[in-house]
Design a protein around this nucleic acid. Structure first.
Lengths: 305, 305
DNA sequence: CCCTACCTATCGAATTTATCTATCGAGACA
DNA sequence: TGTCTCGATAGATAAATTCGATAGGTAGGG
């Protein structure tokens, strides 16, 4: 019996599928099969009924499940106990962060982190995605929060969350009432962009390239925040990452409209780290905070890269 | 973090020594070192202070210990839960047993086993050590209880307990009052033996060979039980395994006297099984009963041979 | 009735990991 | 200052893990 086997068992029990469990464990399905076969051989009992549309727990599996959960829970607690012991003696967390991330998501994360580990100092350096990656490679920061694509095989990433790029128009704008719009509808409109070197812009470019049209870019700002203000001031329309306009949408200062063909315009936010680097306790603690915030489960041994 | 690592950690914490832990885990010391180093790297903290006369827990180690114990405990409970589920549906346990073992220790074990798993049938076949080993090789029995030495590399053994070979004399015998006797004292006495092909006899032979003397064998019986009766009937003296004369010593029908040079005359009782054989649930349950009875801890994965 | 989609098992190769034996080095003890 | 004990390390070998590719088998759609 092995923790990784129990972890695979638990995920399969949750998802009802070897394939989906493999996905959550960052493994291929044959590896998950192997783990379960090892566990079943060890226990001498079949744990799942294999069905064509997935699997179901056998009686033995049902008997094991609560015990497996306790073991996994205990291990999490053990890690947490040692982490708190370590954090109590202070130290510094240094993260690099993409500009958008540092404005819209990092504050929430860091406040949570400081709440849990008050004696740890935090240092943040911001920059574009590429710069953040360089900071990680240099060991200037322990971790980076940024977006794809990754430029160097020495950098490894854990995906944290995805957000859509949404079309934003001022309230009362002719497009504001539409249930869906097309690239043709957008092309004549004055289009406001943030810095074209910004990471998310390449996604917007992909959208326009796919449509065969070009936006009529009337203003180019050097930050998303500034671009957003321009749209609010009715100077044009823009396509912006969802997290940056959350507040304005809620306050009705902006209206978002679905765009045909832009459904898969998604920007992923990644936690990146340098391959082969030993994780400090502080880095682990921060990762744990992130995992809790975004509901990501990081499987045992995922970070031994 | 790994169960085997936690197990190593626990044993080191108990014994205060990597070497002693290695012994209990049926490993070499470098393997234990490797496990602890892996655990320490994983947790990012040192768990033991290495001292020249052993090791002591660090603060981090002290914090981990209770959690490790809970994990190991939960895993034991998980195994037990599945075992009971399996046993409930019945089945048969077949063991081979050496003659002495079947008379003196097996009854107690089997009564305990049947108490825990009433619906399992038990079948016992007895024979000499060599015959028991053959039964295991043939798959006629699932497990064997016997003594060394092992004659075949296909047989693997778990040591259960050791017992001394003790010199027994009738009460009132001239040697009975002595605090210790030598081979010279014994040589003139009428010596009663059980079957010379019996496993324990080779140990007695070693003793005489080391002393350079020979016993005056006046009676040779075909069972230890019969030999013992002869000594009780004051027909001579004998050297017998401790477990066979426990009762008579308690009832003062026999007296045991320490013999110089016979301190290391020890017979070990082994649980044997065939290499590569998959352990049935019933065999595992029986092993668990034996382990509990003799206070033996069987480490995780010990039986995957 | 067949076809497609989905799901798990298996195989072989490449890689990684674990274990052993032998040896080293540091500190306690006499 | 030897000698002993104990843990760390090195190198070799054996074993386990993982992956990609593929087989096999069942349900649902046409």
């Amino acid at each position: 019996m092995d923790i990784q086997e129990l972890e695979a068992f638990w995920w399969i029990a949750q998802t009802g599928s070897f394939n989906r469990a493999a996905e959550r464990l960052f493994l291929t399905q044959p590896s998950v099969t192997a783990r379960i076969q090892a566990l079943e051989k060890d226990l001498g009992q079949t744990l799942f009924e294999r069905k064509p549309r997935g699997v179901r727990l056998t009686d033995a599996g049902r008997a094991l499940l609560p015990h497996a959960e306790r073991v996994l829970q205990d291990i999490r607690k053990a890690r947490q106990a040692l982490r708190e012991l370590e954090m109590a003696s202070g130290g510094t967390l240094s993260v690099g962060s993409a500009l958008t991330t540092s404005t819209y998501t990092l504050p929430r994360i860091l406040s949570r982190f400081k709440g849990q580990y008050p004696s740890v100092d935090v240092s943040v350096r911001t920059g574009r995605s590429q710069q953040v990656q360089q900071l990680v490679l240099d060991d200037t920061v322990q971790l980076g929060l940024t977006h794809g694509p990754l430029s160097n095989p020495e950098i490894l990433a854990v995906p944290l969350y995805n957000e859509s790029i949404v079309l934003c128009v001022p309230p009362g704008h002719p497009l504001a009432g539409r249930s869906i719009v097309t690239a043709e509808d957008l092309a004549p409109e004055p289009f406001i962009t943030a810095d074209r070197h910004s990471g998310y812009w390449s996604l917007v470019e992909q959208f326009w390239a796919a449509s065969g049209l070009s936006p009529r870019v009337t203003m180019e700002l050097d930050s998303i925040e500034a671009a957003k203000r321009m749209v609010v001031a009715r100077l044009g329309i823009g396509m912006l990452p969802a997290s940056t306009v959350e507040l304005e949408l809620a306050k009705k200062e902006l209206v978002s409209v679905p765009v045909e063909g832009a459904e898969y315009l998604v920007r992923e936010t990644l936690l990146i780290h340098r391959k082969g680097k030993v994780w400090s306790g502080i880095a682990n603690a921060f990762l744990e905070t992130l995992a809790a915030e975004y509901g990501v489960e990081i499987p045992t041994g995922r970070l031994d890269d």
